[in-house]
Structures are given as C-alpha cells and as structure tokens.
C-alpha cells in the first residue's frame, strides 16, 4: 500500500456564481506520477492554483503530509517543498537562464538585505554554492549551454524546460507541472516524457495536467479525470481509458 502525500477533502471553489471545483476528493500517492485530465475548463488548473496557494478555496481542506495548506501564501507553500510550473510559461525574461535557476535556490539561504549590501565577501562561498547547484540543474535538463543567455530569448520548449529546472532547484518533494508539453513538437514532447521519468526517479512526486494523451498514458502511474470540477474517474491509465464515463466526457453524447 503506497502512502499518500497530498489529500484533497471536499474541496470547493466558486468564482462568483461559477463553481470551478465541486466537492473534490482526491488522494495523491508518494513517489508516483499522477495525471489530472479532463476537457477544457474542467477546473484542472484551478485545482493546481488552490493547492499552491494562488487561489483560496471556498470550502474543503487541502492536506500535505498532515499540514493544512488552505490559508497559506504561495511562498509559504513553496517553503514546504512544493514546486510548480505554469501553463503559460513564466520565465523571468529579464534575467539570464542561470539566474532564473538561481532564484529557485531562494529558500536555501537566509541572507537578508543588509548582509547582502554590506558584507558581500562573507556571502561569496554561499553564492558560489548557489551558482554551482543551479548549474547542476541546467546540466540535468540539457540547458547548460544557454546559461548566460537572456531567458526570454529561448524557444518555448527550452523555456518550459527552464521552468522545470527552476522548480527543481527548490528541491521539492512534490512537483506540479501545468501542461508541460503544450506547444512542444513531437521530439520535444518525447524529451519531456523522459525528463518526467527522470524526475520520478529522483524520488519526487509529480502531479501534472496535460492534454497530450499519448504522453499522459505513457508516463503516469495513475490518472484522475475531472469534468465540471467533479472527479468522474480515477485509476491506472488502462482503467481510465476503458471507463465509459470518461469516453462520454471527452466525446460528449
């Protein structure tokens, strides 16, 4: 029996009169890759935003290893070891690729403004450590040769990779990927699949939203299907593919 890392209990979110997430109960297992799928507007990204603190739930509970996340701010949730990427890539285009990943090490040091301004020699060793570990992440994702380019100049595929490198620099135990393959070509999508495998092997629990079903079925241990903010099916990729409700939701009778 695998143990759970994240539980959603009766989670509910209303935007004005629209119910985006409706009494959602879901358990995510540690060390697994779970895919959240569903038609457009099903509320998948809202679930991500609820868990990572960008949107506050109307009702229900989010439990991460018995810690209630409900009213925590995004930065506090990041500090618990929860990383994420964004559906519309959000690299810091005003910084270099390496600096982007170095921001990911933000929580791994504690130096404040005064220390940084007045005593930079004291921080040199730590700066070097941050730089080295950021460089490591870039090598892992094959981005090291772009290290000193402005992040905004990278093609979309590489920007998605960079976002993941940045999130990995946080050393998360739980990683949310919001449509990691969207906008990527076939070759890049394959590379993304391999990368997700690699991340799983690093003992990081991955939860992703994705529309590319081939990729989803290939990499996921479990799949949860949402429609109109409700869970309509979950199980292994095989089970879900054969579920009549799922076929219904996608084809719409």
């Amino acid at each position: 029996m695998p143990n759970s890392i994240l539980r959603l209990e009766n989670l509910r979110k209303k935007f004005g009169g629209v119910v985006a997430v409706d009494d959602l109960n879901l358990v995510f297992n540690k060390g697994e890759v779970t895919a959240l799928i569903g038609p457009n507007g099903a509320g998948k990204t809202t679930v991500f935003n609820l868990i990572t603190g960008f949107v506050k739930p109307t009702a229900g509970t989010i439990l991460f290893k018995d810690i209630r996340l409900n009213h925590k701010k995004p930065h506090a949730i990041a500090a618990l070891g929860i990383g994420r990427t964004f559906q519309n890539v959000q690299v810091f285009s005003n910084m270099t690729v390496l600096e982007n990943v170095m921001v990911g090490r933000h929580l791994r040091s504690r130096n404040g403004m005064l220390m940084s301004a007045f005593l930079p020699p004291m921080l040199r060793r730590e700066e070097n450590r941050i730089r080295a570990s950021a460089q490591e992440r870039l090598v892992l994702l094959g981005l090291d040769r772009y290290a000193h380019l402005p992040a905004g100049s990278l093609p979309l595929g590489n920007q998605r990779m960079l976002e993941i490198a940045r999130a990995l620099a946080l050393e998360p135990t739980l990683l949310f990927l919001d449509e990691p393959a969207s906008g990527l070509n076939a070759r890049e999508t394959m590379a993304m699949g391999e990368l997700i495998h690699k991340i799983k092997s690093m003992n990081i629990t991955v939860i992703l939203v994705e529309h590319d079903m081939e990729l989803v079925m290939d990499i996921s241990d479990r799949v949860a299907v949402i429609n109109f903010g409700r869970l309509i099916a979950q199980g292994t990729p095989k089970e879900v593919q054969l579920n009549p409700d799922v076929i219904n939701a996608y084809l719409g009778t």
């Binding site: 930065h75 810091f92 285009s93 600096e99 921001v103 130096n111 301004a117 946080l170």
Partner: peptide
Amino acid sequence: NLIHSRVGRGLQAIHGSEDAAASLGV
C-alpha cells in the same frame, strides 16, 4: 552588491513574474 545577491535576484524575479517568484518561495 544587493543586485547580485539572493535578495536582488528575488526582486528581479518579482519584476519578471510575481506568480513565478512566489512559487519559488519569494
């Protein structure tokens, strides 16, 4: 000094994307 430190990078990240910066713990 400040610009080339953790704090400075955090500030630049806020300018780049507030959401992404927050998701990294800034």
